[in-house]
Design a binder for these strands. Structure first.
Lengths: 163, 163
DNA sequence: ACAAAACAGTTTGCATGCAAATATTTTGTG
DNA sequence: CACAAAATATTTGCATGCAAACTGTTTTGT
């Protein structure tokens, strides 16, 4: 019983620490975004959108929001602000007049050239600085966490006693 | 050279996968927040604020925002909405009249009783479902990632070649 | 052929979230 | 004591982000 208890406590400890680390990671990502904004005057999502557009050549708004895992209504706003600064254009799709084709302008493409890699760059950089074995394990563990979180999405209430 | 190259590729692969998993985790956290909102009519931050307040008894706005790692101006808004629903009260601190003391109302405390554990509950639940060894490794790896990201916050530009 | 359903994009309304500016109060220094 | 500096909370302005409602267009089913 003693063993079980202390093992549970150890797990609790590491779990809390892991959550804390995730918070730090999210914060670091945000700070990186802020520094990018200072450098080139684009917010994280704005740079990300341009980057996806550059990668794909051109995209419908729906496709772009799928790439970014964001709601189309959110992306509409981001695209508005980019268009207002002449970094991209909206062109109606002749094939399907519901659709809008988004493409970079020359100004947009040029800006991208002097811009850093979008948001996740920081994270990827950190991962690349770690030994392969470590990255493998991290990958595996995170995948497990993500899956567990997705599976148990219903009634997780009171999993923790109030101590 | 062959070995080095494929090892780099393996690392790249796992790094990309890890980023993807982090995205899934963030999304799962958000989905959990949404389900909580459906259940008890409070957003994630609102529940979180009440919970911190309950844990501490009472807090100044500054202290609460420190607990939540949020800007005071953000917390002001959250507190506004909670106060509007009579879940907490603002009382001027007689000791220091700049300060405001936040405390739960009876209604707030009662609501908390039937509320699930705030946001991170989902994540903690998932971590507790994992073997201790795994949680330990995850904790360690995440700590490393967070530290690396914080250290290299300046010029990470172009760490990745455009492939 | 044409009503119904599905789809793409936008608009509106709301809740975060931060930075910068402001008002009030307290503290520290000469 | 006086006055500058710091601290606390708020306000304002802006950019995400989602859900729901709405418009127009295309596809589907009968």
């Amino acid at each position: 019983m003693q063993t079980v208890l202390s093992e549970a406590q150890a797990k609790h400890h590491h779990a809390e620490e892991a959550v804390q680390s995730l918070r730090r990671i999210v914060k670091a990502l945000h700070d990186y975004s802020t520094s990018v904004e200072q450098q080139i005057g684009l917010t994280g999502p704005q740079l990300w959108a341009l980057w996806e557009l550059s990668r794909a050549g051109s995209l419908s708004l729906k496709a772009l929001s799928a790439q970014m895992h964001l709601d189309p209504s959110t992306v509409t706003g981001v695209v508005d602000r980019l268009q207002r600064r002449n970094l991209l254009v909206r062109v109606p799709d002749p094939e399907d007049r519901r659709r809008v084709i988004l493409s970079l302008t020359v100004a947009g493409a040029q800006l991208l050239k002097r811009a850093p890699h979008p948001a996740q760059g920081q994270l990827l950089h950190a991962l690349h600085a770690m030994p392969l074995k470590e990255v493998e394990r991290l990958d595996h563990a995170l995948k497990q966490v993500a899956t567990l979180m997705e599976v148990d999405s219903t009634d997780v209430r009171f999993f923790f006693a109030e101590t």
